[in-house]
Structure formats: C-alpha cells, structure tokens
Write a protein that binds this DNA or RNA. Structure first.
Lengths: 340, 340
DNA sequence: CTGTTAGCGCATTCAC
DNA sequence: GTGAATGCGCTAACAG
C-alpha cells in the first residue's frame, strides 16, 4: 500500500475553515441543523464534500456521552435461531443511527461478566441480551450503568430493566397439552441443556403431571445430537409415541434416526420441534414446531432502546410476544397440497 | 430504575488517586506493565477493583488512534452461508482484543458507500468485506484510509488490499466437469442474481462450452425460489438430466419440487448445490454440493488484520482457500450406511 | 442565528 | 521508574 498517499483525515476544523464558519457552527450544521440558517448549512455541506470529511464518533461520543453504539449478546452467532432477531435488531438500530456490536456469551455463562466488561469499555448507549442476565453481579453492574437494557427470548417477573420475550414454561405446557389431546401417553423429551430449554421441559412435565424419559444433549443442539438422543430414548422406552425436541435441528435428527430404523413418522412416532426453522416446513415429513417471531423481538428491542435513549418514558417495558404451535405432518397433520 | 443509585463511572483519575500514583502511572500499569514496578502494578490493580474501573475505549482510542474495532460487512446477517466466517472472525478478533461491528450491505450494493461512511466514522482499525468491494469510489476511499482491508469469499487479481477467498469461476467449472464426467448432457442452472453466483455460472458455461437453460432468482435464494426455478427449467427442457443450483436452499427447493412432481432424484434428475449447509448431508436424498471452509476464511481474515495492526509485514496477503465437491446421493452417490 | 471557552478520559510526548 | 503538561476531535454550556 502506498502509504505516502494517505492524507490525514479531514476534521471538522478543516470543514469549518473551508466553509468560513466557526467550528461549532459546522458541528451544529451537521448534527443539529435546526439551529443554523439554511445558507450556512449549504456552505458547510459543500465544505464536507470538498474535504471528504467523515465525522469521528470516538471524539463526538467522548464529549456528548452518546456513543450511538448498542451491544448485542448472543450465545453464539452461528445459532440460526436468533438470526432473525439479530437481523431485525441491526436494521432497526441502523435506521435510528445506532450500530450493533455483537458479543458471544457461550452457553455456560462463564464469560458473561468478562464479556460485559469488554463491552462496557465501549460505553454503549444500550444493551440487548439474548435470554436473561444470569449472574447477580452482572445484573447489578448493568443496573448501575444506567443505560437501557433489554433482555429477550425469555420472561421474568424481575427483569434487569426491560424485556421482550415469551414464557418457555408455557411453551412446554402447550406442547404437552397438544400431545395429550392427541391421545398420546408414552412421551419422551430430547432437550438441550441450556436454561430456556430446561424451562420448556419443566412446563411440559408440569402439564403431563409426571416425569417422562428425557435425553439431554449439550447446547447448542444439532441434528447429529438428535440422532443420538432418539437412540437413548428408545432404550428407555422402545414404544414411545411422541417426542418433544427443544430445537428443530434436534427434531430433524430424531426423525432422520427414526427413519433409519424403519420407524414411520408420525404413524409409529410423532415429533415436535421448537423454533420453526426455515427447513421445518419443507422436510419430509414436514415438522410440527413452535413458531416465535424473532424479527419482532429484535425490532421491539431496538425500539425500546431508542425510545429510552431519546429520553422518552417507555409505556410498556415488558412485552410478551407469545408463540404458536405450527401443526405439520410430523404429528399427523394432513400434507398440504404442494403449491408453487 | 433507581437512577439515584447511578454513580458516575470511575475514571483512571479515580484509580490513580486511590492508588496514590499519578494518572500516567496508572495508565501504564494497565496497558504497558513492563514500564512499571511490580508493587505499583499491584497497587493500581487493587484500586481498579475497589473503584470498579472500566476503561473508556472512546477516550483511549481518540488519543492513541487505535479503536480496537473492526468492521465486518456482509450482504445480510440472516444468510447462513457466512455464519461460520462471522463466527470465527468474531472469536479470533476477540482473542486479540478487537471487537467486530457488523454492517449489512444488501445484495444490490447501493448502500455500500453510505454504510462505509457510517462505519468509518467509528475509526475502525480494519475492515473485512464479504465479497469484493464493488464501486471504485468505495475502493479508493478504503485505500486512502490506510487501514487493513480484507476481501473474502472471492478472488481478484486486483484486490483492494488483502484477500482470503477462492475462485467462483473454478467452482462453476468443476461442477460442470463433474456433470459431464457422469455423462449428463441435458444440463440446467438455477442461480441467484448476485455477483459471485454469476461467476460460478460463467465458469460452468465455459466448461460446458455452450449456453444452458437458466432460471435466475433474486438473491438471497431460498427453498421457495428453488421450487419456482425448477418449474421454469422444466418448461425450458422437460428432460433435464442434471441441475446446478447456486445455493443449498435453492437446491433443496429444486429437489422438493421434483419430488412433488413425481421425479426421482437422482434417477430422473440429478441436483448439485453450493455451500454445504448443515442440512445438506441429512436431506433425503442427501445433497451433493460444494464445500467451502468458511470458518478458516474468518480466522485467516482476522489474522491478517491483527498482523497488520501490530505493524508486521504480512507474508501472504492473498490466500486461496480452495473448495471441494462433496458427492452425495442427489447425484447418485451410494447412500452411506447410517451411522450414529 | 453564531461564536468563545472549556473539557470529555486517556495516552503520547517530554522531563526528572 | 515515575510525573507534568499537552492535545486527540468534538460538543455542552454559556454568551452575544
């Protein structure tokens, strides 16, 4: 790279000089145009063009205490489950002038606090967490920061600050109710070992009213782990009628393994997943699962953050976006006519 | 929120006072410990604990010209294709003390320059782009910035700066060669309309030596679009023997639609995808596709950025990570024994 | 509507 | 080894 060609980046000072105004007038013309006359704004904007000025948000943020940065914490970026949320969050924030920094907490929460410190050093204007903040220390730290925090994809009577999510206990209960309504009694569970999946299992068991065979796999669950899980479950009860799986990939694995063993789905064994991944509707058999509107979660989270940052009082700081069971072939729904 | 509890965040000044040293000594104790005595370091670290000090990277970056920020540009966060790359990039950067800010360019490149300006205002220490930088203006701007830029997932004889990718033309050629080697002559293409997919199509056609029926769908391609694409292709040639698809979801759609029409895959029609998505190995039939090591791309990109930032001269600024065709049932590979 | 002054929190000179 | 001054680029507060 010909570093001799790299000119020092233009500063607002250069713009002001070029436009023949003072530094602060140039600043206002760009970030608070209502305070400046139209002519001056035009002059400043012309000067921006000629100098190639690009603002320095490090400097602006240092003085104004507004970094225009929001931190997003997910268990892992590669978990497709949260993609619509991250996508919508990124986009909604961008439209309001904020950027997102993503951090990966992992599923064990051991890095939660260290990661939080790293992120706080950027002085973000808000934080969006996937799931609840787990350690008390982290929750206290976040509260003391005095910036808006949105927990998502879960529900709590004692959120750190704001929340957009739904009840995993209810999800589990709804699936169990659906199974029981079908007349199935020999039930099984294949579940990841993460917090939210555990809540769904609890809800499931509470509705069934007794314990059921459970294969637990390490999060993040996957198709391969699903195959192994069915293997385990059939050892516990070779005549299982229906299995709830804590994720769609897990359910897909259970189905693949069932078919490999010559079991028909749903005739011999019914399967329900969670998440409504994009492949769920197109598998053979198509997968009954629980749909959650991840994009809405992201959009609402962004909205809450932005509202708070602009000093508004948020009317509804806790939002339950709910869920719905999508019935498909893997629990016996009639195949829909294939449409284009 | 009890905002009365929010204390002003401790600054390095507070730490220095608490430790009984000067501001700069505290600074050095934390960021350049070799220059400070062990005792002093211990005292400063104790003061950090008691004050709950968390560095302000806005301030540090302003003075030192090192933001420890890297910008990552992807077409869309929800495209699973790039997930391993983003994941590995995030992790490798984190280990080196850098954070990633993700930006979504979309597939039309219209926002490329505006997005770039937004991102540059954070004064990142490096930029990683998925694909090549398209507009000359953007490329010039990046070069003038004087920060390391890594283009990925593509190849070019004239990269903006550094590059980690592979040849899409060669991918297309390899698939065509594979089809021809099987004796198939009635070929079709279902492809997204993005730049890289177009390159693969060109490579495919160059190897075949003539044009073939092509269904073009808007990127990002999807299962639903794949179904539509097959519909189109069969109208062009009802006796197609093999179809190359520019993504695995697209291929999945083609297969679903083929099966819905009573066509057997691969006996009546063979299908090859691109990307080796996680479902590819587990579909029925399993999907022949092209595997690219996305995680390695991310890791190498991070390495290049970090090396440059630490002043080292990068030995190999352009890396071709290659690709390989993974042969599975959708082009006639014998089903592997089902294993657990 | 515009300008002057001051300082955000830190790291890079220089001194000792 | 340690410290005192200076300023990174910008904006809040006050003046005019």
């Amino acid at each position: 790279m010909p570093s001799s060609f790299i000119l020092k980046a233009a500063t607002l000072h250069d713009v002001a000089r070029e436009a023949g105004v003072s530094l602060i007038t140039a600043s206002r013309a760009l970030s608070n145009p209502t305070l400046v006359s139209e002519k001056t704004i035009a002059r400043v904007q012309k000067a921006v063009e000629t100098t190639g000025y690009i603002p320095n948000l490090l400097a602006g943020g240092l003085k104004s205490k507004r970094s225009l940065l929001v931190v997003g914490l997910v268990p892992a970026i590669s978990v497709a489950q949260f993609l619509p949320t991250v996508q919508a969050l990124t986009q909604a924030l961008d439209e309001a002038g904020y950027q997102l920094i993503l951090g990966q907490t992992g599923y064990d929460h051991s890095r939660e606090e260290a990661l939080l410190n790293t992120m706080i050093s950027r002085r973000p204007d808000g934080i969006v967490v996937t799931g609840l903040v787990h350690s008390d220390a982290a929750r206290d730290k976040l509260r003391r920061l005095g910036i808006p925090v949105v927990e998502t994809w879960d529900l709590s009577d004692r959120p750190t600050d704001m929340l957009v999510g739904f009840s995993h206990v209810k999800v589990g209960g709804a699936i169990a109710g659906y199974f029981l309504g079908k007349g199935w009694r020999r039930l099984g569970i294949a579940t990841g070992d993460d917090h939210r999946a555990s809540l769904r299992r609890e809800g499931f068991l509470a509705t069934v009213g007794r314990d059921v065979p459970t294969a637990t796999v390490p999060a993040p669950s996957s198709l391969a782990l699903g195959r192994r899980a069915l293997h385990e479950l059939l050892q516990a009860d070779p005549a299982l009628q229906a299995i709830y799986c804590s994720s769609d990939p897990l359910a897909q694995g259970v189905i693949v393994e069932a078919q490999a063993r010559g079991l028909r789905v749903p005739e011999d064994i019914a399967v329900c997943g969670f998440g409504d991944a994009d492949f769920a509707a197109h598998m053979r058999p198509s997968l009954t699962t629980v749909h959650v509107d991840g994009a809405t979660i992201g959009r609402l989270a962004a909205q809450l953050i932005v509202e708070r940052c602009s000093g508004q009082t948020v009317a509804q700081p806790v939002v339950d976006v709910g869920f719905r069971i999508v019935e498909r072939e893997s629990t016996g729904a009639t195949a829909l006519p294939d449409q284009l």
